[in-house]
Simulated assay, not measured.
Amino acid sequence: MQEKRELPNVTLVAMASVNIRATIKAMLYSMRGIEFGDAVLITHKKPLGLSKSIRYSHTDRLCNIDDFNYKMVYELGSHIHTDFALIVHADGFVVHPELWRDEFLDYDYIGAPWPLPPEGDTTTYRDKDGNICRVGNSAGIRSKRLMDFPKKAGIPWEGEYAYGQMWYYEDGFICCKIRHLLEAEGMRIAPLEVAKYYSHEKMIPEVQGITPFAFHKWEGTNAQYPNFIKASIKERIKRRLKKEGTVSYEK
């Protein structure tokens, strides 16, 4: 049996108030082949039967996607006690632990590459100077200093104009909106040439033929990876049908 890779300075983390069971399964799946320094589920209530390998850390209920995005910028760092955090979601997690590269930790942020903005679009995936940002995506690795920076520096929560409307997404805020502030502090976002080996979300030309360490969402070749959300829904339906069947039988 192959020994687990040890990443003592990395915390595996997920923040969620929905799809909790699927999120836990995604975390456990991500731990195959890797011994993280810590693993923490940030949620509003400790799930029954939570694996002893995962620490519970409390946050107020995330009532919507806006709550999630805000907390990922201003609260995430307070739950992390290592130099880095590897963020997973129910729909994005580690699938090929054997493809880990130590260079992933050379940066303060790495996630799946973004596509080029549509032709003529001068706002999407761009920093304050209009430069196109090719790497972002929430399911990725962040340094502790990057996670702590927005709150410590008192940076206001502002939207990012993309695809013709205003968005309040934490990955766009970090990798585009305040990129210049991060870089002024010496922090670095991974280039596309490294990020394409970390994770895939969109099936852009630059990722073709590459098997990633992690993924986000089930587009294209990502469809081959486990879908714990669908599996959890099926389990709930089976339990409900079984319960209804038992009630009917007893009557």
Rank of each mutant, 00 (worst) to 15 (best):
E158F: 01
G130W: 05
N64G: 12
K25H: 08
Y197H: 14
T82K: 14
A14V: 00
I34L: 03
R55E: 13
Q208I: 11
L105F: 00
S199T: 02
K151D: 07
A22L: 01
E170Q: 15
I20K: 09
L116T: 02
R239N: 12
E185H: 12
E235I: 04
W100Q: 03
F173Y: 15
E75Q: 13
F173D: 11
D106S: 15
G49M: 08
R236N: 13
S199V: 01
P226F: 05
G154D: 14
D38S: 09
T246F: 07
K217N: 06
F104W: 03
H58E: 13
R145L: 06
T122L: 14
W114E: 08
K243E: 14
A195T: 10
A85K: 04
G130T: 07
K152A: 15
M27R: 02
R188E: 15
L76T: 07
F68I: 11
C133N: 08
G49V: 09
F104D: 09
E75W: 08
A153G: 10
K202V: 07
E35R: 15
R5G: 02
W114N: 13
K243G: 10
C63A: 11
H89I: 00
D83C: 06
M147K: 04
R142D: 03
E235L: 12
D38R: 09
P117C: 05
L7I: 02
D91I: 01
H44K: 03
R239V: 05
T11V: 00
D171F: 10
V135L: 10
H58M: 05
N9Y: 00
T82G: 08
T221C: 01
Y70P: 06
W218L: 14
G92I: 04
M1R: 07
V94L: 10
N9R: 05
G136R: 02
L28G: 01
Y225G: 03
R101Q: 14
S232Y: 01
H89K: 09
V88C: 12
